[in-house]
């Protein structure tokens, strides 16, 4: 592997982690609400957790890629990537924080459960949009 291209590859790897795991977390949460099966909820949490853990790698490698390949130029697509990237991280980290703080409250439902599920679903929307933007560079 050409090491000069490693940050670009890292960005692709990291973004595929998040873009793959968050939709699965969203679907598993829907299945949990439909079936009431706690294993679905736990699986959704771990998908969201590993997806969130991949975000810092994706940000750093993406920032490096932007500064080197694109000379840090500011255009609409990079601005959108930055804004939705930050929003995605806030939603994902917020969802994880809620679930870690009180797993039972999330599992039972109510306000915290709705906030958690909403954050995961909105984060999935952000990840999808970011993936759409990323596809323009391929």
């Amino acid at each position: 592997m050409n090491l000069k291209k490693l940050p670009v590859h890292l960005h692709h790897i990291g973004s595929h982690f998040t873009n793959g795991l968050f939709p699965v977390a969203s679907v598993l949460l829907v299945m949990y609400f439909v079936t009431g099966d706690r294993e679905m909820e736990a699986a959704a949490f771990y998908c969201a957790l590993f997806g969130t853990l991949a975000i810092p790698l994706t940000y750093l490698s993406g920032g490096y890629d932007w500064r080197t390949r694109f000379q840090g130029r500011r255009t609409a697509i990079f601005t959108h990537k930055l804004i939705f990237g930050v929003l995605f991280f806030l939603l994902a980290a917020g969802a994880i924080a809620l679930r870690v703080a009180d797993p039972e409250a999330v599992a039972v439902g109510g306000g915290i459960g709705i906030a958690y599920a909403s954050a995961v679903w909105l984060a999935t929307g952000c990840a999808t949009y970011l993936g759409h933007l990323g596809s323009k560079f391929i």
């Binding site: 390949r69 130029r73 255009t75 609409a76 323009k136």
Partner: peptide, 12 residues
């Protein structure tokens, strides 16, 4: 701006 963005993506 749209044309400039397309070129910024295409050059690399």
């Amino acid at each position: 701006k749209a044309k400039i963005e397309a070129l910024i993506i295409a050059i690399p």
